[in-house]
């Protein structure tokens, strides 16, 4: 019972605020432990990123915006950007729609059931994306299980196009990214004391009101994390759209690879920067969403 009191959000944070108010400028020696990792990140991540950023302004032997012109003004470049944003948005939306109820159900389940569902979600993540994509290709074929079943049930009279279509790609990707939404939402929901729901109920809140006013606001930080992870992972994915959507569906990640294949590193860099900025904006927005509601009055 006392453990519930300790998990009431906010209690921990007050003690942190109260800790040593005067000594703000002295560096805690323990903080030096982050130095090796910081040095590594600087060399292996920040430096190449800077090189790439500089490279993206490099065209015809001088500095220019020509590469960005090709990415954002050229119809194929623009299509790649639009496709990526639309594809990642739908997948993220689908994951929220399916993942939040799943996490809510999991929190109420017995710890045994929770374990089984968690293993069931995590185990497939250890197998190759290629294998899983090929699995979907087999299912999506005109003579695949999905079309056969739909026709047998009489839902459709002719096979539906799923393979090499955007909706097929979205359906398949949701199945691959769903755990990335369920896990953070589940983690946040399991921190909420069960008595909060009981308190809302006794105060006269029905299930819908309880969800809107208690569960959802408290789950929002978890949803924001899942949102950021699923969106960035989907927008950056290369294998899944390549295998399931084919060459007629340009995305930013595919354009990057294609540019580097034809040795146009400058154009590839420009595509990379656009992808980075797009994902960065969405991650930043989702962070705001989580924070705003946490402190909302």
């Amino acid at each position: 019972m006392t453990s519930v009191a300790e998990t009431v959000p906010g209690r921990a944070s007050t003690s942190v605020h109260e800790r040593r108010p005067g000594i703000r400028h002295r560096i805690d020696p323990w903080q030096l432990l982050v130095l090796p990792a910081s040095a590594y990140l600087l060399l292996a991540f920040a430096a190449p990123l800077a090189v790439m950023f500089a490279e993206s302004f490099h065209a015809g032997g001088g500095l220019s915006l020509a590469n960005y012109d090709r990415v954002l003004m050229d119809s194929r470049g623009l299509q790649a950007t639009a496709n990526t944003v639309r594809y990642a948005s739908w997948v993220t939306f689908g994951c929220v729609l399916l993942g939040v109820p799943t996490a809510m159900a999991m929190v109420r389940a017995s710890s045994r059931t929770q374990m089984i569902v968690l293993i069931g979600m995590l185990l497939p993540m250890s197998s190759s994306i290629v294998v899983k994509s090929f699995g979907w290709m087999i299912l999506f074929r005109r003579t695949g299980l999905i079309n056969e079943t739909l026709m047998w049930l009489g839902v459709v009279s002719a096979p539906v196009a799923l393979l090499f279509t955007e909706h097929g790609l979205i359906i398949a990707t949701i199945s691959l990214k769903l755990p990335l939404m369920v896990l953070p939402v589940f983690a946040v929901l399991s921190q909420i004391p069960g008595q909060l729901g009981d308190a809302a109920t006794t105060l006269g809140a029905g299930p819908v009101y309880r969800f809107r006013r208690v569960t959802l606001p408290l789950a929002l930080p978890g949803i924001a994390v899942g949102f950021a992870i699923v969106f960035s992972q989907t927008a950056a994915s290369y294998l899944i759209p390549t295998l399931l959507a084919g060459g007629r569906y340009p995305t930013l990640s595919k354009s990057i690879v294609e540019s580097y294949i034809v040795s146009n590193a400058a154009l590839g860099s420009a595509f990379s920067v656009v992808l980075l900025v797009t994902v960065g904006v969405v991650v930043w927005l989702s962070g705001r969403l989580g924070k705003d509601h946490q402190s909302a009055r």
Binding site: M1, V8, P193, Q195, L196, D198, A199, A200, L218
Partner: peptide, 9 residues
């Protein structure tokens, strides 16, 4: 309730 169950948000 025992631990008050106030809404932290």
């Amino acid at each position: 309730f025992q631990n008050y169950a106030l809404f932290p948000h």
